[in-house]
Amino acid sequence: MKKYREGSEGSMFKERIKHMDKYLVIPFLVLSLFSIVMVYSASSYMGLKDYNNPQFYLVRQTAYVIGGLLFAFIGAFFPFRLLKKKKVVILGILLTIVLLLILLIFGREINGAKSWIELPFFNVQPAEIAKATCIWYLAYILSKKQKVIADDFLNSIMAPSLLIGLVVALILIQPDTGAAVVIVAISAIMIFASGVSAKVGLMLSAMGTVLVAGVLELVRHFGTHLPFLRGYQYQRFLAFWDPFALADGAGLQLVQSYYALSRGGLFGVGIGNSVQKTGYLPEPYTDFILSITGEELGLVGILFVLGLFTFMISRIYLIGIRSKRSFESLMCIGIATMFFIQALINIGGVIGLMPISGMTFPLLSYGGSSMLILSGSIGLVANISARDRIERSKALVNK
């Protein structure tokens, strides 16, 4: 009996590998490995300057990518029945809230914000964990309410909205406005995808647009007199509206980003030959790695990254749409939206279409928590896709 079970498990493993979606896995692997190259190129000067070691960030990013691949592998074979258990879901969201509270109490403040819990060998960023946990929680609760949400919209979303609101509030206190915006956007898209009528969806979209426009006008007219706006955040808005007027201060990053992209032209100045990374452009290997990519590899390099990234996101959405299980479908939609919104905010900041928020580019920028969470999420999508493919192939055989 034991031999049979082992053989069965081995056969299941091979079958899962066989049906893994290569159109999802290959772009993920290419982007992850490409991040090692670009982080090394973008960080070598800072590593030499700050640590007397140009490979300082290279070693760490390589470790993060290897860890990310491990998380992706685990996600690809993780038993989904555990993710659908109520007690496990509640435990996950409670642990996330506890981590956010620990961060506010013991987190180290850097540049006016508490974003990391420092551990001996690794810094944990609870906001990244919160994004994944919120997707998981919403996929679970909305899949349970899918049959009634269209008829009783407000009562159906009241409890989940309050819980997500608590998580967002704890993140805003850090403050991490970018992560809060990402979670709100993910939540809105997942609610729309769960069976809400088109009329309600359009109404909420219009309300959201008016709210964003209203906040921008309030910031423009009242600035730091607003209780929710800190001084450095207001400076980011001023830099967004007129970066060259603040080129020596708040507008420095955006102006230098423009210089990097302009210098790169169509084909770039060559890998490793960026000038802007040598002290001119702050955060060249995190928030502005796309600017360095543009400088060194030109517009062609940026289009390669964005094309591969767009293809991967489209594939995740497609897997979600094709899935016949509501939980799995909502998980995919939430994960794809997480990638899309983060990339949109980062690109918007890099080219001056949005205020700079400190949002990194998914899978490309330097960072541990982000790489592990995003890679694990890709693994879960690959898991969903493989299981759906196996079921479809078995259904065809039985016919």
Rank of each mutant, 00 (worst) to 15 (best):
L290D: 00
M190C: 06
G231H: 00
A63L: 14
L163A: 01
L308Q: 08
L29H: 01
L138W: 05
G349A: 11
K277G: 08
Y140V: 06
V275W: 01
I313S: 04
L299E: 02
G201F: 01
E109Q: 12
K14I: 13
L170A: 01
F311Q: 07
R389A: 14
Y137K: 02
K84Y: 09
V300L: 11
K18H: 13
S161Q: 03
R60W: 07
G47V: 02
S44I: 02
S8I: 11
L204Y: 09
K86N: 13
K49C: 10
I157H: 01
V88T: 14
R236Y: 00
A386I: 13
A336F: 06
I183F: 05
R16P: 06
A139C: 09
K399C: 13
R325M: 11
S35D: 08
S323Y: 07
R315T: 09
V275G: 10
S326T: 11
L297R: 04
A193R: 03
S156K: 08
E15T: 15
A239K: 01
G265V: 02
G307K: 07
I351G: 09
S385I: 08
A193S: 12
P362H: 05
F80Y: 12
Y317F: 15
Y137C: 06
F106Y: 14
V397R: 14
K22E: 12
I341T: 08
K324G: 12
G348A: 02
S326G: 03
G368L: 05
T96S: 12
D388G: 13
I384C: 10
L138C: 02
L82I: 15
K18N: 12
F106M: 13
F361Q: 05
M38V: 12
Y137N: 03
A130N: 06
K145G: 00
M12W: 13
A245M: 05
P160C: 05
D176H: 00
A127Q: 06
M331E: 01
G214D: 10
V98S: 12
F237I: 00
D21W: 05
V300H: 01
L261G: 00
R108G: 11
M331Y: 10
P284I: 06
F106W: 12
I117Y: 04
A139N: 07
G112I: 01
S365P: 05
R220N: 15
G379C: 11
L229H: 00
G249C: 01
F80D: 11
V25Y: 11
F122A: 09
L374M: 14
D242Q: 07
F327Q: 01
V215A: 07
I74K: 05
S44L: 07
A193K: 04
Q276G: 06
I129M: 10
Q55G: 11
E15D: 14
L48I: 11
A213C: 13
Y140H: 10
A72H: 02
L266I: 15
Y366C: 08
L330S: 02
L299R: 05
L238W: 03
L162A: 13
S32L: 07
A247H: 04
